[in-house]
Simulated assay, not measured.
Amino acid sequence: MLGFHNFRCARIILGGIEIMHMIRKGQMPTPKGSNPSTAEQFYSLVV
């Protein structure tokens, strides 16, 4: 593995990995009454 080129890249990549773990575990806050899929939750963060 080549590693991270700088601290900023490492922070962004690791943050994304942590968010995906939170979404998969159901720890992401969602509006009451809605049950979005994992892809929909991820997309809502990007937009």
Rank of each mutant, 00 (worst) to 15 (best):
K25I: 05
S44L: 02
K32P: 13
N6A: 05
N35M: 12
I23W: 01
H21Q: 07
F7T: 13
Q41W: 00
G3V: 02
T38D: 06
I17Y: 06
G16S: 03
I13G: 04
S34M: 13
K32I: 09
F42D: 00
M1Y: 09
V47A: 15
E40Q: 14
F42Y: 08
L14M: 14
T38K: 11
M1H: 12
T38G: 03
G16P: 00
M28D: 05
R8N: 04
R24D: 09
S34Y: 08
T38C: 08
M22A: 10
V47P: 12
I17K: 07
P31T: 06
G26K: 03
A10S: 14
N35K: 15
G15E: 03
N35R: 11
G26R: 04
P36T: 02
H21P: 00
G15S: 03
G33W: 05
R8Q: 05
L45G: 02
I12H: 09
S44H: 08
G16F: 03
Q27K: 12
Q27F: 03
F4E: 01
G3I: 01
E18L: 11
N6I: 01
G26Q: 06
R11E: 08
H5M: 11
M20R: 14
M22L: 13
R24C: 04
P29L: 05
C9I: 15
M1Q: 07
M20A: 13
M1S: 10
Y43L: 10
I23M: 06
C9M: 14
N35C: 11
E40R: 05
Q41P: 00
L14G: 01
V47W: 09
V46R: 14
I19V: 11
S44T: 05
T38S: 06
P29A: 02
G33R: 05
E40D: 10
Y43G: 03
I17V: 12
I12D: 04
T38F: 05
F4G: 03
G3C: 02
R11S: 09
K32N: 07
F7D: 14
I23T: 04
R24A: 14
K25H: 05
L14N: 12
Q27D: 15
K32G: 08
F4K: 04
I17M: 07
S44F: 00
R11K: 13
V46Q: 14
R24Q: 07
A10V: 07
A39D: 08
M20Y: 11
L45A: 03
V47L: 13
K25L: 12
P36D: 01
M20F: 09
L14A: 07
I19C: 02
K25N: 11
I23C: 00
H5A: 12
E18G: 08
Y43K: 15
M1N: 10
G3P: 03
I19Y: 04
H5Y: 13
I12N: 06
R24W: 08
I19R: 13
P31Y: 03
R8K: 07
F4A: 06
K25G: 03
